[in-house]
Nucleic acid binder design. Structure first.
Length: 564
RNA sequence: GGACCUGUAGCCUAGUCUGGAUAAGGCGACAGCCUCCUAAGCUGUAGACCGGGGGUUCGAAUCCCCCCAGGUCCGCCA
């Protein structure tokens, strides 16, 4: 049953507007007290040369109530339509309860989409920026999958280059061949920090690092062995963190394996005059007519640059998976880079360049400014997880006495829920400041707030004897109940919108609103102590709310605990 | 200098694509609510010339132009 179509049909009969025009102007009122759909009569006022409110009155007289549209009303220049509550309530709640975990899912979309994230450097542990990256990549993957897309998640290790050699050098000099005595990516990162400290008083280290890079490039055995060892430490540490975030990749690419292979592609294109040489004999892509700065692709000595390897990787990924779309989850500071890359790929005649997309996310600042790995002013991902979990543990201890295992489990659910929601609720493009003191909160617009609403519902349901027999849905007529049903109804549309606009934040906001409205309802209207029929209807309602809260949390990678 | 992004109460955000009915939440502040389904909750009060100025429109936080402020980028770094 499509109520909107029905309203449009009615209006089509009584105005001379076409369905497509009506679909465009028909709106959903800001508040349910104005009905479910509103037709603004301004549109007709010119044609009829009458004031909009008079047109509304005239239309009202012509329209009779039907089974689905129970009432029409004039409010100033608006003609408002009210859907029959009983039909709507029943339809929405029954759908949620029937589809359960699949509510909000569809198999409409068939395309294959690749998402690449978080592409770390293998010389230091993951930090808060990666956390945002991972949460965005992962939740978007879930959201796209829920719409039927075949999603391929890939990672790229930036595993070669001068930054790697710096931590290698420090290990060589001061590492005493030690094995990791802590989480192994942190162990590697310590040497990067150590290098940065030492180089301040000893500039020669910089040259030594470059020597090491040259040795690496020549394939020096000892250097390669150390490089391999330290990289495997770093990656092993990353894997543990990925696991905490529930992330698995279909494939991981390593920059070192193919960074040189793009040379042939570039040279061939150069021969076909797609690229040129500049005064210094570098091969460049001329991008000025596309409104972009030119870009060097091969140095005059034939060595490749960052852009070159990205060209090769794009080809490699497409050869591997033949995807229709490819999303790069990378910070917004690389916007220009990706505009250039995509333009170059088009010039090269790559397939599916229309499907290339840079999902740029904003910076995270700390109260003291920008994060700098070198200076150690970063928020480490693992530390952050620990801190959130510890805080959650403290909060739980205030309320309950739990055995150790349950305490660990629940504090992880809540701590991670808080962290994930805090970051996901921001729109991807937005910069924000992460103040550890204020950000670690479990009250207000937070993950635990939503989890709490979920747990509360569960607690009520546990105490009830819910009969799945006949429910009189017309009894759900309080404004809170109607709002709640409207939100349940629109949940699938919100997920669809989140998928098409690549904004997991939309889902986050929606379930937050739902939890807020539920809490309002909870305080105003008793469920268990309500009169029999009303109780049954409310039980059905909150069961549906619980389901949607859970679905929304889960799609964002957040757990929905039954008790808190 | 150029390109892109951002600007909504003391602070953080939603709403901007697709213009419409009193600009919606949270934090903080103040005043209340646990003999009643989990107070990680709820209610109320104070707090907004939607960065500024023009324009389009019956109607602008939303669209267009100009300006101001902040950020990012404009490497043969990744």
């Amino acid at each position: 049953m499509n109520f909107r179509q029905e309203v449009i049909k009615i209006l089509e009969k009584h105005t001379n507007l076409k369905a497509t025009q009506l679909d465009k102007v028909l709106e959903i009122p800001p508040s349910l007290q104005f009905g479910d759909y509103a037709f603004p009569c301004f549109v007709l006022s010119k044609e009829f040369k009458k004031a909009p409110h008079i047109i509304a009155e005239e239309l009202l007289k012509k329209i009779k109530p039907s089974k689905n549209i129970s009432k029409t009303e004039v409010k100033g220049p608006y003609l408002n339509f009210f859907i029959n509550r009983e039909v709507l309530n029943k339809e929405v709640i029954a759908k949620v309860l029937k589809e359960k975990n699949d509510y909000g899912k569809t198999s409409k979309k068939k395309e294959k989409i690749m998402i690449e994230y978080p592409a770390p450097n293998t010389n230091k542990p993951l930090h808060l920026g990666h956390v945002r990256n991972m949460l965005l990549g992962k939740s978007l993957s879930n959201i796209l999958e829920s719409q039927g897309y075949k999603v391929i998640q890939v990672n790229l290790n930036n595993d070669r280059g001068i930054h790697i050699c710096k931590s290698m050098l420090a290990y060589k000099k001061w590492g005493k061949n030690k094995e990791p005595n802590k989480k192994s990516d942190h162990f590697v990162g310590d040497f990067y920090v150590l290098y940065s400290k030492k180089v301040k008083s000893d500039e020669k280290l910089e040259l030594e690092a470059y020597d090491l890079l040259k040795k690496w490039e020549k394939g020096d055995k000892e250097t390669r062995a150390l490089w391999k060892k330290m990289n495997s430490w770093a990656m092993k540490g990353f894997d543990e963190t990925y696991k905490t975030f529930g992330i698995k990749f279909d494939k991981t690419y390593n920059e070192s394996e193919h960074y040189e292979k793009a040379k042939d592609i570039v040279m061939e294109a150069y021969k076909k005059r797609k690229f040129k040489r500049d005064d210094q004999k570098n091969i460049i892509a001329e991008l000025e007519k596309h409104g972009l700065p030119n870009k060097v692709l091969l140095r005059s000595d034939g060595t490749s640059v960052y852009m070159t390897q990205d060209i090769n990787l794009a080809k490699l990924k497409f050869d591997d998976f033949k995807m229709d779309r490819s999303i790069y989850v990378v910070g917004s500071e690389q916007k220009l880079h990706f505009r250039q890359l995509f333009t170059i790929l088009k010039k090269l005649g790559f397939k599916n360049t229309e499907g290339l997309y840079h999902l740029a996310y904003g910076m995270i600042y700390l109260p003291e400014g920008k994060m700098k790995s070198r200076e150690g002013t970063v928020v480490d991902a693992d530390d952050l997880i620990d801190e959130m979990t510890t805080m959650a543990k403290k909060e739980i201890k205030k309320r309950h006495k739990l055995d150790k295992k349950e305490l660990e489990k629940r504090s992880k659910q809540i701590g991670m829920g808080a962290l994930k929601f805090f970051i996901t609720k921001y729109e991807p493009a937005k910069d924000f400041t992460f103040d550890p003191k204020e950000s670690i909160s479990f009250e207000g617009e937070t993950g635990p707030y939503i989890q709490y609403a979920h747990a509360r519902i569960n607690s009520i349901l546990k105490k009830s004897s819910y009969m799945s027999g006949k429910v009189d849905y017309s009894l759900l007529k309080a404004s809170e109940e109607q709002e709640l049903i409207a939100m349940l109804k629109s949940y699938p549309e919100v997920v669809e919108e989140a998928a098409s606009s690549y904004k997991p934040s939309l889902v986050a906001r929606h379930i937050l609103d739902l939890a807020q409205m539920f809490n309002e309802f909870y305080h105003k209207h008793p469920v268990l102590k309500a009169e029999n029929h009303v109780r049954n209807a409310r039980l059905a309602l909150i069961l549906a709310i619980k389901q949607v809260l859970k679905n929304g949390l889960n799609i964002l990678g957040i757990e929905a605990p039954n008790e808190m």
